[in-house]
Write a protein that binds this DNA or RNA. Sequence first.
DNA 1: TATTGTTATACTCTATAACTATA
DNA 2: TATAGTTATAGAGTATAACAATA
Lengths: 167, 167
Amino acid sequence: MTLDDAHLRAGSAADAAGAPAPDTANADVGTLAARLRIGVTRLARLMRRQGDTGLSPSQISALTSVELHGPMTLGALAEHERVAPPSITKVVAKLEERELVARRADPADRRAVRITATPAGRALLAEVRQRKDLWLAARLAELDDDQRARLAAALDVIDALTGRVAP
Amino acid sequence: MTLDDAHLRAGSAADAAGAPAPDTANADVGTLAARLRIGVTRLARLMRRQGDTGLSPSQISALTSVELHGPMTLGALAEHERVAPPSITKVVAKLEERELVARRADPADRRAVRITATPAGRALLAEVRQRKDLWLAARLAELDDDQRARLAAALDVIDALTGRVAP
DNA sequence: TATTGTTATACTCTATAACTATA
DNA sequence: TATAGTTATAGAGTATAACAATA
């Protein structure tokens, strides 16, 4: 782990006239990666701390998937959550106890069950997201205009990084 | 989610002579927060997938803390990990089995034990970080120069966001 | 007595194997 | 016979309570 922040920020690398790697930012993709990893990991951890729900991680994750991907069978949900079928049965049972999801028999295939998020389930997710956003907005408000502008200018890059990736 | 990237990227900061709410980027700190939350959450998840170790999350986290904060007592480690003392006893026992950490009796206080990361433990952490960095560097290599430059320009903002935060 | 760490025990989470009911 | 989901059971992980050794 040999990070050289000053090097990254300063002129560095192939500034020298028509060099092929033109920009300070391209000085070292590996170094950029390491710094981004550290920053993103820390920020994600701090955000996670704001998101306490009383639900287990699998429960929150399953609820999020159900909200996002609409009515799902238990099998599809298990696959999406990378979890064994008996596990999803229990996770969904817990969520159902709290009335955060609802089950509906599939009319075409009587073996299958469709899971949907209830209004309470959606409200809970919205509340957690809002709590994280409020925390983050408070941190952003402490920055200066230039910092916020630079962050805003990088948002679509982060989207590009996550959107077209081979998982 | 109504962000206008082009708008954000353009004029930036308080171009318009001394306007009080000057910047497109500040148009809505809440919107900025929401987009940042989504991007960071996704990117962190994708990175986490590259970091499989065979260790449980608590084991990795404890090992990381020990590496970072030097020789620690079990009590200090438990506190740092926000975990009960008996739990840390077991976590450390597992790490010790694999020779990723070592115990050393405190010479001054014979009740206490100091935990340190072994070379193997440090190597394992380095390998995981490298795997994540390689994955991330490959993604970064797919971006264009302008995107990398904007990302690099935002790195210190992310640091500011995580560094001086009240947890 | 107070503190450091461990052992005893219980609960949650998740997995594999075996089962039920449909298809 | 194959598929969707459940029940039975076992193995991690973590917690509280009770204990041992040392301060």
